[in-house]
Simulated assay, not measured.
Amino acid sequence: MGTRLMELVERFGGRLEGDPQIEVTRIAPLDRAGATDISFLSDSRLRAAAAHSRAAALILSPLDEPDVAAAYDGARIVTNNPYAYFARTAQYLCGSGAAPAPGIHPSAVVHASARVDPTACIGAHVTVEAGAVIGAGAMIDAGCYIGPDASVGERTHFFANVTFHARCVIGARGIVHSGAVIGGDGFGFAVDGGIYIKIPQTGRVVIGDDVDIGSNTAIDRGALDDTVIEDGVKLDNLIQIGHNCRIGAHTAMAGCVGVAGSANIGSHCTFGGAAMINGHIDIADNVHVTAGTLVPNSIAAPGRYTGFYPIAPNAEWERSAALVRNLATMREKIKVLERGMKALGGEQAARAG
């Protein structure tokens, strides 16, 4: 079923230029959109492609709209943030189809003391342990495990084969992708005479509302206190969050980021792929760490931080590495030269006097 442009504007705002009764069924790229598609322009460098698109309608900014409108015959939704408008439209169009019927699949194993809202959907071979709570409209896909006394908020969606351990909590409208493990033991050991002694991990993982967690991401439970993921956090695939970390609201991390235990990260931060965060440090709000950067110490001021050496041809990189290794020696030589020049300057001044 299609959605009329008028419905999108009534729901998400924006200024509509063109026929409000036009129906669109999906979002498509500019170069592949057809007569029932809506597309978007968020990069002004693609104005020419937008102007020649066959999409039924375009989402674009006030800055781009005049140039595109000169050659484009379709309808236009003009908004200050086309990319965000596209995201909301895509959510709406994807969610307008038939949702799975609520209920518990016959092969699921649900403990008698668990509380599953009648509007939730529990898929095949799901296990829900004693005391667990599944909220209204939640979707737990096939093969998931919900541990004892765990709590899943309303309209949260676990894709297939998510593991959600005992007493962990996630709020409303969360998305957890396949293979994620929430609440596994943190990496905590005491050493006695060269022998590692395991420290029981008795805390929880507490996750707020509107959190997205990617495939095969692991969030460890706290050792004594909780690991906390605040509202709106977005975690990509293959991320490791150590025990007792706190990730501030609306922080986003790209794939393969690693956060060691007890790191305290602020709100509205971003971390590029494969960034590594040391444990027991504090990172302020609005810090942006680039890909591959190692953060060994606390960051107190907002801003953009980079800590990797750029790629170069191997021979050039080896020469640079050799220079870096010799910087301390070069520094001492420069100090000696500076002292010599200062002494020579003093002698010349004395003769002149």
Rank of each mutant, 00 (worst) to 15 (best):
L8Q: 01
L8M: 02
V9H: 08
V9D: 05
R11V: 03
G13P: 06
L16W: 00
L16N: 04
P20F: 10
Q21T: 14
T25C: 06
R26G: 06
I27D: 01
A28D: 04
A28K: 04
R32E: 15
A33I: 02
A33Y: 01
G34R: 04
D37H: 05
D37F: 04
S42H: 14
S42Q: 12
R47T: 10
A48C: 00
A49P: 13
A50C: 07
A50T: 10
A51P: 13
A51H: 10
H52R: 14
R54P: 00
I59R: 05
D64F: 08
P66H: 06
V68W: 03
D73M: 08
D73E: 13
G74F: 10
V78Y: 02
T79P: 00
N81Y: 07
Y83D: 03
Y83W: 09
Y83E: 04
R88C: 09
Q91R: 11
Q91I: 09
C94E: 15
S96D: 11
S96R: 15
G97L: 10
G97C: 08
A101H: 14
A101T: 15
P102H: 09
P106V: 13
S107H: 04
A112D: 15
S113H: 08
S113Y: 07
P118Q: 08
A120E: 04
A124N: 08
A124Y: 03
V126P: 00
V126A: 14
I134N: 08
A136T: 08
A136L: 05
A138P: 12
A138I: 09
Y145G: 11
V152R: 05
V162G: 13
I170P: 00
G171C: 04
R173E: 08
G174H: 10
H177R: 08
S178V: 01
G184S: 15
D185M: 09
F187D: 05
F187Q: 05
A190R: 10
A190L: 06
V191Y: 11
G193H: 11
G193N: 11
I195G: 00
I197H: 14
I197Y: 01
K198H: 09
T202I: 13
G203C: 12
D209I: 11
D209M: 11
D210C: 10
D210V: 07
V211T: 10
T217V: 03
T217W: 01
D220R: 12
R221C: 06
I229F: 03
V233I: 14
V233G: 14
K234T: 13
N237C: 02
N237S: 03
I239Q: 03
C245W: 07
I247N: 07
I247L: 11
A249E: 12
A252L: 13
A252F: 09
M253E: 00
V257G: 01
G258D: 01
G261L: 03
N264A: 11
G266V: 01
H268S: 13
T270C: 09
G273M: 01
A275K: 02
M276W: 02
D282M: 12
I283G: 12
H288A: 10
V289I: 15
A291N: 07
G292H: 03
T293H: 03
T293P: 02
L294S: 05
N297H: 14
I299V: 15
F308L: 14
Y309L: 13
P310Y: 01
I311T: 14
I311H: 14
A315S: 15
L323E: 06
N326E: 05
A328Y: 06
E332H: 09
K333L: 02
V336S: 15
L337D: 06
E338C: 11
M341D: 07
M341F: 07
Q348H: 01
Q348I: 07
A349V: 08
R351S: 00
